[in-house]
Write a protein that binds this DNA or RNA. Sequence first.
DNA 1: GAGGTCTGTCATCGG
DNA 2: CACCGATGACAGACC
Length: 591
Amino acid sequence: MRHMKKYFTEGLIQFTILLSLIGVRVDVDTYLNGYLSPLIEIDGGPSSAFIQTPFHLYRDTGAGHQVHLKCPELDYYFTSRRLLNEVRALGSPARFPTHVSAWLVHVVPDDGSDVGEPHDQSGDSGNDEDTLLNQENEDDEVKNERGQEEISLDSVSQLTRSSALEQEDSSSNALPPPISGLELTPQWQDFLSEFDDFDSQRISDLEVDLPNPISYNVSLQDAMVTRGDSTSCRPTFSRAPLFRLESTNSSHSDPSQSSAGALPSSLFSLMGNSSLNETSHLQVGGYLDEAVFEQINMMDLGTIDPRMLDCLQGDMDTPWLEDSDSGLSLESSSRSPASPSTSSDSFCEDEGEATGYSSEVESLSSKEGACAATYRHWSPVNLNDNIWHDHTYSVPQAQNSTSTGWVQPIKVIKQEVMSEDEVEPEEMSRDEQRVQALGLPFSAFQIVNMRVDDFLEMLDRQNLSVSEVMLLRDVRRRGKNKLAAQNCRKRKLDAIMSLQGEVEVLAAQREALLRQKSHTSKALFSATEHFQSLSRTVLSHLRDEYGQPLSYEHYALQCSANGRVVVQPRTNTTSRTMTGVKTKRKKDKKP
DNA sequence: GAGGTCTGTCATCGG
DNA sequence: CACCGATGACAGACC
C-alpha cells in the first residue's frame, strides 16, 4: 500500500504540475493534506521562477536588498545570490525538475547508488517500476483471496466513502484494496510513463535554452579555469590575482612597473568596458555561473587552489561591489577600487573629483616643466596615476591597448596637446583665449584641473582684479562641468546599452517560455486523452449491482492522496445518483 | 532647409 | 557656506 500511495501520489503531483503550467490553479496542498506541502509553491512560489520569472521585480529587490540604480555590479551580485537561492530551493525532491537541475547533475555518485541524481526522472521511473510490481503482487493476492475480478457497486461505494476517511487517517489499513490494479497495470504504467517522458523532454528542451550549461561531468576547478574567457569579465578578475592586487593598490603602485611587468593586456579593456559588457552580465547563465561556482567553492574548499579562493573571496569583498562616495557609481567602483579618501597623490582623486581628459592630463605633465618656474608648488599631475585612477570614459585608446602598447596612445595624445600651443587662436576654446588674454602663465586646462588650494593660492599670488578672478572661477567651473557632462552622457549611453541587452535577454527567455508552454499544452492534452481512455476501460470492467457496466458519463476515476484510485460519481450527477442509490437500497430493504 | 547628433554651458540639487 | 559632481535643459555647431 505504501508503494501504491507513493506511486499515485507522484502521478498526481506531476499531473497537477502539468495543470499549473498551463495556468490552471490546482490547490493540491489541501488535497494532499500536508503530504507534500512544498507544492503550494508551484503557484507563485520560489519554484515558479523558471515558469514565469519576473526578473524586473528582482532588479531592485535582490533578495530584499535595495540595489542602487547606478551600480550594476550590485545588481549583478544580488541577482546571482537570488538565483543561487533558487538553485538551493530545488533541492527538495518533490520539486518539479527545472533546467537548473542540469547544473547539479554532474555530482558524481559514490558507489553507483541513487544518490547522484536525486531529481532525475529516470531514477524515479525505476522506483515506479518496482512500486508497480509490488502493486501487482498485492493486487494478485487480493484477487486470489476474493476469487473474483468484478467488484460490486457496494464495494465501490464503500471505497468511495472510505477514501475520505482514509485521507484523515492514513494509518487505517483495514480497507480493501483499490480497484485500479485490475489487469490494467501495464496500461497505467504506460500512461504514467508519459509524464516521465514529458519531464525528460522538458529538461532536454530547456537545456537547449541554457546559455552555457554544464552538461558534462567536470571538476569544479576545471570548470572555473576553462570558462573564464567567456563573456563575463569578473571570473577573469578572479583568475588574475596579480591584476586584482594591482587594481586595489593602484593608488600607490608604480604604473611604470606595472606596464613593464606582467600586467594583463586586458586591463584597460576590462576596466573601461565593464559597463559595456553589462549586457553579457545580464545573461542568466552568467549569473548562475558565478553564483553556483561561488557556492560550490564554499562547499569544497579542499579541492581548490587557495589562491583562487582568495581571489574569489576577494572579488566579493573588493570595493567594486560597494558604491563609491563620489557618485560615479557606474564606473568608478570598478575603475578605482581604492578609496578616494586614502589616496591623496592621485590627480583624479585629489579633490574627490571625477576628472577626465587623460589627454590633457598628459599635456599637463608635459607642460609641467615650463610651468614649474612660475608655479613650483603645483604638481598637478602624475601621469601614471591618472591612467590608473581615471574615472572618466575618455580613454578609449588606453582601454583597447595592450600591456606593451598602452603608452603609445598617450604619446599620440601628448603630441596633439603639444601642438595645442601652436594652434591658431580661433581654434582655441573661448575660455582658453580669455585665460591667455590675461597673460597668466597657466592654460585653461591647468586652471580647471589644479587643486582647489593651488587655485586659490594662484588667485592670491597673481594680484588679479575681481573681474579676472571671476573669469578664472568661471573658466574652472565650466571646465569641470564640461567633464561632468561628458561623464554623464557616457554613463547614460552605457545605461541604455545595458538595458538593451537586458531586453534582448528577456525576449529570449520569453520565447523559450512560450515554446515550453506550447510543449506542455500538447503533452497535457495527450495525457488527458490517454487518461480518459484508461478511465473508460476501467469503468467498462466494473459492474454495478445490476450487473451493468459503469458509465463514463456518470462515474470517474480519482486518485487520492494515499495512492488509492477510487470510482466516484461525477459532480453534476452526484446528488441525484447517490440519492437514487440510497432510495433503491431503502426500497430493497423494506421488503 | 529640416532633422538628428554632438558638445558646451547654465541652473539646480544634493553631498 | 563654499565647493563639487550629477543631471536636465537649452543652444549652437556640425553632418
